[in-house]
Simulated assay, not measured.
Amino acid sequence: MDKVIHSKESKTGIAIQIFGIICFLAAITLLYTSTKSNSPAIYLFFAGFFSFSILVWVIGAYQKRKFYKLGKTPLTLTPSICTIGEEFKGSIEIEKPNVNRVKEISITLWRRSKTTVDESRNDIVWESSATTHINQVDGKTILDFSFVIPRDKEPTNKGFFSENKYFWEASFEFVESMQSIKRTWEIPVKI
């Protein structure tokens, strides 16, 4: 059975804009409160908070616009869960025709380590790439690739309470019109 995975970037712009709207609503609430207390410091605080919310919303709009340069890019895996030592096939559907800039897909094993209570760090444990085969179908670009994760690349310390958490990603990146276009998918891998 095939599994369709949506890119991590598909939600970034919308999430940033929602945060901007929440900040805007908080700023409006602050303005309402400040009209009752009549304190000039609260008006200044409102102006800063209002400006921040507009900035965050604009950044989210920029991220959305950047995302829609390629549009939705679902990754379909066959089989639905990759097994170490066995070949899996991936197919990325790009809603635009003639996207010929993606020559390779990177496959990366990441280790997320806790550095402090609130912070973590991601380190690359292993990385390789697969060549794409570009097909044009019904006005869309289809990137097909296949890959085998070697058996000696099994992550260690995979227990639930371990300090290290491992995850696998497929990704590509290229530059177009002075902008970096990137797509990343977290892929399920079983050992």
Rank of each mutant, 00 (worst) to 15 (best):
T116L: 09
V137N: 06
N98M: 02
I5Q: 00
I42A: 06
Y166E: 06
P188I: 06
E176V: 13
W57K: 02
T78D: 14
K182W: 06
E104T: 11
W168K: 00
K66P: 03
M178I: 13
D144N: 08
S146H: 09
T131E: 12
H133A: 06
T141E: 02
S91N: 08
A130M: 14
Q179L: 05
S146C: 05
W57N: 07
Y62E: 13
I21Q: 05
G20A: 06
R112E: 14
T33W: 11
W185A: 01
E186M: 04
I107C: 08
S34C: 07
E176D: 12
E127K: 04
N100C: 03
K36H: 08
F52C: 03
K8C: 03
V56I: 11
T156S: 15
Y32D: 08
Y68V: 08
L77M: 01
Y62R: 06
K89L: 08
H6D: 15
S37I: 14
T184Y: 04
K66G: 05
H133W: 14
G48C: 07
N98D: 09
T29Q: 12
I107W: 09
K69S: 09
E169F: 00
S80C: 08
I5N: 03
G13W: 12
D123Y: 10
F88M: 03
A61T: 14
S51C: 09
I92H: 01
I54M: 02
Q63R: 10
S80N: 10
Y43M: 02
A41Q: 13
S177F: 12
H133G: 07
G20H: 05
K11E: 11
P40L: 07
V137K: 00
T12Y: 04
K158A: 09
K89P: 03
S91P: 07
S37A: 14
I16A: 08
S34P: 02
S171Q: 01
D118E: 13
Y166N: 07
Q136L: 00
E163Q: 14
L44M: 10
M178D: 15
A41V: 15
E95H: 09
I59T: 12
F52M: 06
Y68S: 15
D2Y: 14
K69M: 13
K114P: 06
S53Y: 09
T115Y: 14
I81V: 12
D2E: 12
G90V: 11
E169M: 07
I134A: 01
G85A: 03
D138R: 04
E87H: 12
S113Y: 12
C82E: 12
A41W: 09
R121H: 14
W57Y: 14
F24T: 05
N157R: 08
A15R: 05
S37H: 13
T132E: 05
V117M: 13
S146E: 07
D138K: 02
K66F: 04
S10V: 15
N38H: 05
K36R: 10
R183W: 04
K190D: 15
L30C: 10
R112D: 08
I149R: 00
I149F: 03
K72P: 00
T108A: 08
T108K: 07
F49A: 10
T76F: 06
G159Q: 01
V175P: 02
Y32C: 12
K72R: 01
V189N: 07
I14K: 03
W110Y: 15
E9Q: 14
I142L: 08
R121M: 12
E119I: 10
E186Y: 04
L25M: 02
E186T: 08
E93Y: 05
K190T: 15
P150C: 01
S162L: 01
D2M: 13
L75V: 06
